[in-house]
């Protein structure tokens, strides 16, 4: 039996760009170029490695996002994923993590899965909770924040480096995992991979296709509201001195003046 792996990837505004809020206080997705979240590249990489280890496996990349989010899917396909699913619906603008997880869960069930692989957090929202919520919705084990992961004999095992301890985890498939940026560098798409990706199937779905009702989603359906967004006042440029042999002492003098010493 083939191992069915679904990788959840998000299309995000480039973190090195100048990110802003739109008038409705959602992320302004026009202000900055978008790309496949760098943290989701690690998820694609681990999925591909698990797939390589398995006798027979299929990797599907899945995104919920606007039309441009296809770019993220293309990137993942050119890294080596087999096919893609894109959920795009105008009713989804402004959807929160609970709505997004509902859509992802429905799309994952429709696709069929043994293993779901997520990134540790999206580089725009950075909540880092979606994988746990997805596991709750799908009713399967959550094996999250792994810096090492492997699949064998119908089980997923992995290492979670927590604040207080390092834990080794084990769960039976089907399961939802998320991997951190410590899990191993993601591969670059090869030229061959980029060419091959153009021919790989991308399934387009909207909420109707998933039997979901638009009213539950979008800004209206969101259970949190942002009332204010204010740019942090830029830090006023401080004093910068060149070390002429007394730099450490000058710094100490400054710290003493600020009552740190």
């Amino acid at each position: 039996m083939s191992l069915r792996i679904v990788v959840c990837v998000k299309y995000v505004p480039d973190a090195t760009g100048d990110r802003h809020f739109a008038e409705d206080l959602t992320t302004d997705r026009d202000a900055v170029d978008g790309l496949l979240s760098e943290l989701d590249e690690y998820a694609v990489e681990q999925a591909l490695q698990i797939s390589d280890e398995a006798d027979d496996a299929e990797v599907t990349v899945l995104t919920v996002g606007p039309e441009d989010a296809r770019d993220a899917l293309r990137k993942a396909l050119s890294m080596g994923a087999d096919k893609a699913v894109h959920v795009d619906d105008e009713d989804l603008h402004g959807t929160d993590v609970f709505g997004t997880s509902k859509v992802l869960a429905a799309a994952i069930e429709k696709t069929g899965y043994d293993l779901v692989v997520c990134g540790m957090a999206s580089t725009d929202g950075v909540m880092g909770v979606l994988p746990a919520v997805l596991a709750e919705r799908l009713g399967v084990p959550q094996v999250t924040l792994l810096s090492e992961v492997s699949v064998a004999d119908g089980k997923v095992t992995g290492r979670r480096d927590g604040d207080a301890a390092t834990e080794n985890l084990e769960a039976a498939l089907p399961a939802v995992v998320s991997v951190t940026d410590q899990s191993g560098e993601a591969r670059y798409p090869s030229f061959k991979g980029i060419m091959a990706a153009k021919k790989k199937p991308v399934e387009e779905l909207d909420l109707d296709d998933l039997d979901l009702d638009g009213d539950d989603f979008g800004l209206e359906g969101s259970w949190t509201a942002v009332d204010e967004a204010n740019a942090r006042p830029p830090r006023t440029a401080g004093t910068v001195v060149k070390d002429e042999g007394e730099g450490g002492k000058q710094l100490a003098e400054y710290l003493a003046g600020q009552k740190f010493l």
Binding site: R235, A237, G238, T239, V240, V241, K242, D243, G245, E246, G247, G248, K249, Q250, L251, A252, Y254, L255, Q258, L261
Partner: peptide
């Protein structure tokens, strides 16, 4: 971003700062 910055080699500046502290 800094309130105070020193342009210099950390292997000179940091030990000197540590001693001074």
């Amino acid at each position: 971003l800094v309130d105070y910055g020193v342009v210099g080699d950390l292997f000179e500046v940091v030990p000197q700062l540590t001693e001074e502290v």
